[in-house]
């Protein structure tokens, strides 16, 4: 597969068109927080809401968002919205950490599909340093929003 086809894996192209979590959803009184991320170099933007359950150890109930950006940033937000529900905030943080580590490895870290699931499809992004920020956009927003929602 060419580097380009590794970057634009079919999963990514699909998620960039059929986007999970797109459209901000009401939290219905549950703990939630919004976070806005903006990439000034390309103008990509996301407004993302994490809603938690009100259990003693809260889990992610829902991630919803609205955004404008390239296929990589939109697909990454979509994949996370699909994966995150049911995770504790600690599990979500650990997933974000693994994703970030993979993206920053310049292609040196083989993704663990067991852990990363569909997010492993973004391994090809690591070779395009300029695109790492794109993939992280929604994930950073979720990381920040989850921290705030858990307070």
């Amino acid at each position: 597969m060419s580097a380009l086809d590794q970057l634009y894996q079919q999963i990514i192209l699909d998620h960039s068109k059929q986007r999970n979590g797109e459209g901000l959803q009401d939290a219905h009184g549950l703990p939630s927080a919004d976070n806005h991320q903006y990439n000034p170099t390309c103008g990509d933007e996301i407004n993302l809401r994490v809603t938690l359950t009100d259990e003693s150890e809260p889990k992610v109930k829902e991630i919803s968002w609205e955004g404008d950006g390239c296929s990589i940033s939109m697909a990454a937000a979509s994949v996370l919205s699909e994966m995150a529900p049911g995770m504790t905030t600690a599990e979500l943080q650990s997933l974000v950490d693994d994703f970030r580590e993979m993206l920053r490895s310049r292609g040196k870290i083989e993704p663990d599909e067991e852990v990363l699931g569909d997010a492993a499809a973004f391994a090809g992004v690591a070779k395009f340093v300029a695109r790492v920020k794109c993939a992280m956009l929604g994930w950073v927003a979720a990381e920040e929003a989850a921290k705030e929602a858990a307070l």
């Binding site: 380009l4 634009y8 990509d44 950006g69 390239c70 296929s71 990589i72 395009f128």
Partner: peptide, 11 residues
């Protein structure tokens, strides 16, 4: 998105 256009052209 323009970013994707530019990426494809760059290859």
């Amino acid at each position: 998105h323009p970013h994707d256009v530019g990426q494809l052209l760059d290859t």
